[in-house]
Design a protein around this nucleic acid. Structure first.
Ligand SMILES: [Mn+2]
Ligand SMILES: [Mn+2]
Ligand SMILES: [Zn+2]
Ligand SMILES: [Zn+2]
Lengths: 143, 143
DNA sequence: GGGTATATTGAAAGTCACTTTCAACTAGCG
DNA sequence: CGCTAGTTGAAAGTGACTTTCAATATACCC
């Protein structure tokens, strides 16, 4: 899974004439080793602890490349920061977001996806992508 | 409908000790007279044609007040701008957004809302609000 | 291995959409 | 009217990117 994404990115990089660098390797490993939905800044601060030399701009540019290569997806939870999560070809999920502690749960629901298609068809729209986020309190925080 | 929202805002303003000003009246009328999903900047530019004196900050602050009073809802379509739309107590709808021409269609779907509740319940979440947006090409643009 | 042509990097400057500050205005009340 | 508290618009401030650019690092060709 993780190795697979690594390979996908390397192939993407090769096809685009991108070079393999120490920074990209570090950022890729770091990104793939967490399942949290990290913002650019969060990943940058985390990286800096072990690799003080890496700059914010490099993290920013590299995450963008990950998204272009298909191994990452950019997400916005309305807190003003851009986040990135792992993305796999042909897979899709939506999110439950706890507005108190920031916990995030991913879910898939075929029935909703189907209803979305029906709605779009009803208005003649050709849907390219969508966003479904449920905001509230997680089980812990609502106690 | 329009008069009703006007009244709701006036009562909200009175309850908060807010004063009635020429600017607020103008912005309120302007906001209520369009059904488009205008950004702060768009409404500001539109207003300036007939009322050159009004400042961006005033439009910004006033739209925020509308949202607080319950007659408006803030929306984000991912283009980096904050938009406001009419909002009525107890009503809710989601959006279809054309990524080419910017057209927006509002829709309601009880079945989806219900499935969302079930998903949330399944994870123990208490949902406060949600966001469902379908992005793609409208009937005209897909031709 | 060295020599080059390209790509990459990090720091700093720039951008954009707000958001706040503040001195000059009003409303609203007595 | 005379005050007092709320408003306004211009300008300055913020925050999260986003771009620029000189210094480096790679990948490829002898
Ligand atoms: Mn979905
Ligand atoms: Mn909805
Ligand atoms: Zn929580
Ligand atoms: Zn369209």
């Amino acid at each position: 899974m993780k190795q697979e994404k690594k390979k996908i990115f390397q192939e993407y990089a090769a096809a685009r004439g991108l070079k393999s660098t120490r920074q990209r390797d570090i950022i890729l490993d770091s990104f793939l080793s967490t399942d949290r939905h990290l913002s650019i800044e969060e990943l940058y601060l985390q990286l800096r602890e072990k690799h003080p030399g890496i700059g914010y701009a490099t993290v920013y540019r590299t995450l963008k490349l990950f998204a272009e290569s298909g191994i990452a997806r950019e997400i916005h939870f309305g807190d003003g920061q851009t986040r990135y999560e792992h993305q796999a070809e042909g897979e899709h999920h939506d999110h439950l977001v706890c507005t108190r502690c920031g916990a995030i749960v991913e879910f898939e629901n075929e029935a909703i996806e189907k209803l979305q298609d029906e709605i779009a068809a009803g208005y003649g729209f050709l849907i390219k992508n969508h966003k479904l986020e449920l905001y509230g309190l997680c089980a812990k925080c609502r106690k």
